[in-house]
């Protein structure tokens, strides 16, 4: 059994009188020392997965199905207190906004020491020694322990947040867009530092981002999400060399690569599905240029066209044709026209 096993995870938010499944039947597993990049557009459920794993969902959200097993131990249904004890020691999160993750009225050192003492049996002195160690790991000087958050630059704050998350060598690290607000030079340093530490302490890492090029650089596996579901999952290198799912093909078209001469970027027309009113069939059907009746009737299961590569599409055998067509703007233009027609019809009937 893998170190982290997530099976059919369902996370539901209640909104007004209704509800929506932000994460709908997501399964994946991760061995020790492996890293998985989770990518997708806003609203695809990637951050919800992170919060679900930490069990730090907002009040209106809850895990409504499935299981999360860390090292064989079931996490779903654990008491708040049991879960609190797990955090930082067993599972730690590097959050997106370093600016808000730190308490402005305590020094960074106090916050680190408090975290270490609350989650381990170390005394103050040992905790302080540990704090100095992790500061060194993330490349901050010891004297910064005495600084308040406002005295640090954005990059330093982000490193302090990383230090905070990694103090107890957690076997599972969840990084939610840890570098999105930073400049590229800073981002580059921080990414490689996270990677180095993750390898050193042999943790598993889930790295959540909207930037597929970051995943390409630092994760071994990639999971592409759309509308609360997994569309494609593969080894990162395989995924970037030959993706299968039409959504992945669309994403690659839309992404500028700095080292390549780009003829034209092509976007995916339309917008993500309304999860409060889910259509039967494939989640991507409305924006997919290859959608057929079957896609509207029947939800695709996973096909494994290559060992270790999973794609949630009915037609993995037509991938050559899809790749060829997806590279042309016209293919996606037909989707745009169809969506405009549908809107007009909708307006006429409504």
């Amino acid at each position: 059994m893998a170190f982290l096993e997530v099976k059919n995870l369902e996370i539901t938010y209640t909104i007004g009188s209704g509800s929506l499944k932000a994460v709908d039947g997501v399964s994946f597993s991760l061995e020790k020392g492996q890293s998985l990049g989770v990518v997708g557009e806003s609203g695809c459920g990637k951050t919800t997965i992170a919060k679900g794993l930490m069990q730090l969902l907002p009040k209106n959200g809850s895990i409504t199905g499935g299981s999360i097993k860390i090292d064989g131990k079931e996490m779903v249904g654990l008491s708040r207190e049991a879960m609190r004890r797990m955090r930082l020691k067993e599972i730690a999160m590097i959050s997106q906004s370093a600016m808000n993750a730190l308490n402005p009225v305590y020094t960074i050192g106090d916050q680190l020491v408090e975290g270490i003492m609350a989650h381990s049996s170390l005394g103050r002195k040992e905790a302080l020694r540990r704090a100095v160690e992790v500061f060194e790991m993330v490349g901050l000087e010891e004297k910064r322990l005495k600084s308040y958050p406002h005295q640090l630059s954005g990059g330093m704050k982000q490193r302090a947040v990383i230090a905070l998350a990694l103090t107890l060598n957690p076997p599972l690290i969840i990084a939610d867009e840890p570098t999105t607000a930073l400049d590229v030079v800073v981002q580059d340093r921080i990414l490689h530092r996270i990677l180095k530490i993750q390898k050193e302490i042999n943790s598993s890492m889930i790295f959540i981002t909207h930037d597929i090029s970051v995943v390409s650089e630092i994760c071994e596996y990639i999971m592409v999400m759309y509308g609360g579901k997994v569309m494609e999952m593969a080894k990162t290198d395989d995924f970037f060399r030959h993706p299968y799912h039409p959504y992945s093909l669309g994403l690659q078209n839309a992404f500028p690569i700095i080292t390549e001469e780009m003829e034209e970027l092509i976007s995916i027309p339309g917008s993500p599905p309304n999860l409060q009113n889910v259509l039967p069939g494939c989640r991507f059907q409305e924006r997919c240029p290859f959608a057929e009746q079957r896609c509207r009737d029947e939800e695709p299961g996973f096909a494994e066209p290559e060992p270790g590569l999973l794609t949630a599409c009915h037609f993995p055998e037509r991938v050559e044709e899809f790749r060829e067509k997806a590279a042309h703007r016209d293919t996606w233009e037909t989707v745009r026209k169809r969506l405009i027609e549908e809107m007009k019809e909708g307006a006429a009937h409504g």
Partner: peptide
């Protein structure tokens, strides 16, 4: 040069 080298590239063969 530094800025350019820090840009992540979505190409495993690069």
């Amino acid at each position: 040069k530094v800025l350019f080298s820090a840009v992540p590239v979505a190409d495993p063969d690069h």
